[in-house]
Design a protein around this nucleic acid. Structure first.
Lengths: 246, 246
DNA sequence: TCAAAAGTGTTGGAAGTACACCCATGT
DNA sequence: ACATGGGTGTACTTCCAACACTTTTGA
């Protein structure tokens, strides 16, 4: 358990948001940063950096997420630790990767520059290190988890129509869903409830607005979530943090 | 991405095996090692140690699994990276934890000593560090995964009766299963096939022996199984090498 | 012939899928 | 009035849980 010499420990984060593509259909995007030093100088890569001695892994992820998007995530979860010997050409590097979901309206406010840009998740260039594999794995986790949990809500505001919620699922799962059955499944699951308000302005029957039922668990992550979480007004964020008691 | 000073990186492994308790019923056990230095001197802890610069994380897990049980695992998977600032009293320590399944006959051959012992998973003493939480999480993953994958086979040899397979499920899930329905579900899943052999000697109708169908995937772990992480599911596939009848 | 476990058949309910149909609004 | 999406009803299928029943052995 002594300190390991010659070995770097970093945290990287895959940040997902929904944005509209050219045809106006929502799809999954993520921000990448251009590397400004070797190795892989000039290539696009996941935001990340070394873990500081005084911060937890999750806080390190939050920090470099804030440094990239200047916003807090609606959802944050550890993805995997990548540690193959040859994954970085110069130095032995172990990266603990987190994945995050942010709301579209927040994502739009991200300050973009020469070295930070959004990419469609299914049309990435060749990235630095093993980051293509990492993104593929994160996408797989996002899609898998979408089918048995409630993380879709991390992509939405506090009130939303069933059509908006359905579009999130369709964008992530990349397949159309039956509106009638989708409605019934969501309502019978007890995860959402009607607010009574409706949205006027569309040239059709005004849809009702729904909200999430706060006391329903987002994800069953087992003992790691058992530690009490402040149920924040952001109605999300309940399911990701691993509180390790001393 | 520079090397992080003052921060230790270790690998620990939760090793599960099925053993019979006092009443002869199989249940989940794991080997622990007694700490022979501070912090937590004298307490029981998960086997583990520092990651060497020239070995991958998974190889580090295999190595300290071999050093503890002197055997190779039938199944090995990364569990989680634990990295809270205060999880070790003296030094900042990040532990990447793996979990493993070993067969009962192999587990019995493990050389036990003063400082290595098997414990029933549901009756652990107070362990060093945050290891109680880690074991709880590993148990949760084992039980969750048992319900949607084929990892049960990692607890068995190459041929087994349906009753033996069912007992594995019952021991892990801690609930009785209907033998009739269990049989149909297993057979219709295509995961196992009859060998034609039967076991005589019991004082009842001789049960047939089954084997795993090798080309059926054990677990869908997404992109990590396909390319970069060959050994996640490979071991079992090799153990029950597929003879697919024409 | 009896006990015990292997293995088969049958039924009822829950949940998912497909799709016909009505409702309420803007134009 | 009619197009458009919101919302309801309903039949069909598939899967799962419960449990009665038959089969084959050892004692």
């Amino acid at each position: 358990m002594t300190s390991t010499a010659g070995l770097g420990l970093a945290v990287s984060t895959v940040i997902f948001a929904l944005r509209n593509d050219e045809r106006g259909a929502p799809s999954v995007w993520l921000p990448l940063v251009r590397r400004i030093r070797d190795p892989h100088l000039g290539r696009w890569a996941l935001p990340g950096g070394a873990v500081r001695v005084e911060e937890s892994l999750e806080n390190a992820a939050r920090r470099n997420l804030a440094e990239t998007t200047s916003l807090g995530p609606a959802y944050l979860e550890q993805l995997y630790a990548f540690g193959d010997v040859d994954r970085s050409p110069d130095q032995r590097l172990v990266s603990i990767v987190y994945w995050a979901l942010v709301r579209p309206d927040e994502a739009e406010q991200v300050t973009l520059g020469e070295n930070v840009r959004w990419f469609a998740a299914d049309a990435l260039p060749e990235l630095a290190f093993d980051h293509n594999l990492i993104v593929d794995y994160a996408l797989w986790r996002l899609r898998t988890k979408m089918e048995y949990s409630r993380i879709a809500h991390a992509f939405l505001g506090s009130r939303f129509t069933l059509a908006e919620l359905r579009e999130v699922y369709e964008a992530v799962l990349q397949k159309p869903l039956d509106p009638a059955n989708f409605r019934r499944q969501m309502l019978s699951s007890g995860a959402i409830e009607p607010t009574g308000e409706v949205v006027t302005g569309g040239r059709h029957r005004p849809p009702e607005l729904y909200r999430y039922v706060g006391d329903v668990q987002l994800v069953d992550a087992g003992p790691l979530t058992a530690a009490a979480q402040p149920s924040v007004a952001t109605d999300l964020g309940a399911a990701s943090t691993a509180k390790v008691p001393a």
